[in-house]
Design a protein around this nucleic acid. Structure first.
Lengths: 220, 220
DNA sequence: GTATTTATACTGACCGGTCAGTTTAATACA
DNA sequence: TGTATTAAACTGACCGGTCAGTATAAATAC
């Protein structure tokens, strides 16, 4: 059954990605991948000249999938709301949903995995990661930049692109915490907390005062 | 120069930690470590029965250093302020200073590095990582819990321990972004942004209205 | 419409090298 | 004298990578 070579290639990439996300690239042997993908050793090297080429292919595919996801979420957010802040909040909430449905073994980012394995990727491939982060920054940062024009933030010197980077960082941090603590639900709660930050920063706050606290709101 | 065995052991751990933080544990060979530490192959195995024992020792030492750091910062923060919110803000600012003085090759967390290399550490050693995270959570979360009693947060259902976890995640995420983008300064700005979140959440906000925006502060 | 060719997909044994770990004999110090 | 260290040789498992050959199916030929 030599028909569809591309299907095999994708199966190799799927098996490889799962292994790399769990154990890391260096600790993933070609034999591991070959066995998990249900193919022979020769077939692996038929599709990928070297293990480093596999790494490159993994990053390329991951970057493309990431781009598609982000653009899809952007479009959905733009369809669901006209207010730019609401769009940003929805954009993040859509990510939250995805993470909630993730299997524990998927909870991780391939880019982050390689970030602690310097020297594997060549400069071009590293650039794909940078582009991917910058794409995210452009999309979410752009929404927040627009939001600033319509909602006065409660603080001065708000940098919408720093906020976008921070959101990306929160995702990455939540992945690591989630893996270290074995707590899957952590992902959602961290994203939700970040959304709360945006809400309170842009003044979209549910009315206070219904609470039972002692009262005085004066700070410091 | 066979004098101090412990000094050699520490030199091995130093060299190993630097390599692991850069390339990962699996990609770090005993020869790499041995050469970087300026010792012989035999000496490495004299001090560490196996490479896995080295991993364990690295985590133990890192956990201890982490504990010392956090406790030191907690004490300094408690000395510098009595208000629990201010203590939390100072506690974070002290971390910010440390990260600012970090060399690019140090920018990373050993725990995070191992979080993408499953299977290397035994359960006991993994538990050290969990304890370390929980220690952080107790310290910062405790400060924030106290802060909630004195400052009414502008939102309901604020979970001080979730905020502490989030701060930890922001650190981790900033490390990854910093490494991926090659931007060292990112660390500080992300921590500073998180502190702003706490400020705005607890109502410690510099007066608004001095800004040049169109005016209306009413949201949504 | 069967034989032949061609391109693609795949196999598994094999090779050279590297890795973690062992052993040994000699040596430096306190 | 015992602890710390060195240098070097060695083992065996495993690793990435190669290669000669097989299987398949569609295209081409007769």
């Amino acid at each position: 059954m030599p028909r569809d070579g591309n299907e095999t290639k994708q199966r190799i990439l799927d098996a490889a990605q799962a292994h790399v996300l769990e154990k890391g690239f260096a600790a993933t042997s070609v034999d591991d991948i070959q066995q998990a993908a249900g193919i022979s050793r020769g077939t692996f090297f038929y599709h990928f000249p070297s293990k480093d080429d596999l790494a490159r292919a993994l990053i390329v595919r991951y970057g493309q999938a990431d781009y598609t996801f982000v653009e899809g979420f952007r479009e959905r957010a733009e369809r669901l709301a006209t207010d730019p802040l609401q769009r940003a909040l929805i954009f993040l909430a859509l990510h939250e949903d995805v993470f909630q449905e993730m299997q524990p073994e998927e909870a991780g980012c391939l880019f982050a995995s390689f970030s602690y394995e310097a020297g594997v990727l060549d400069d071009e491939t590293e650039a794909i990661i940078v582009e991917s982060i910058e794409h995210w920054r452009r999309v979410l940062g752009g929404m927040l930049e627009e939001a600033m024009l319509q909602h006065s933030p409660v603080m001065e010197d708000v940098d919408p692109y720093l906020l976008a980077d921070l959101a990306y960082g929160v995702f990455q941090g939540a992945f690591i915490l989630s893996r270290s603590l074995g707590d899957k639900g952590l992902m959602s709660s961290h994203i939700r907390e970040f959304r709360r930050y945006l809400e309170v920063l842009f003044g979209v706050v549910p009315a206070r005062g219904t609470r039972t606290e002692t009262g005085s709101a004066a700070p410091l």
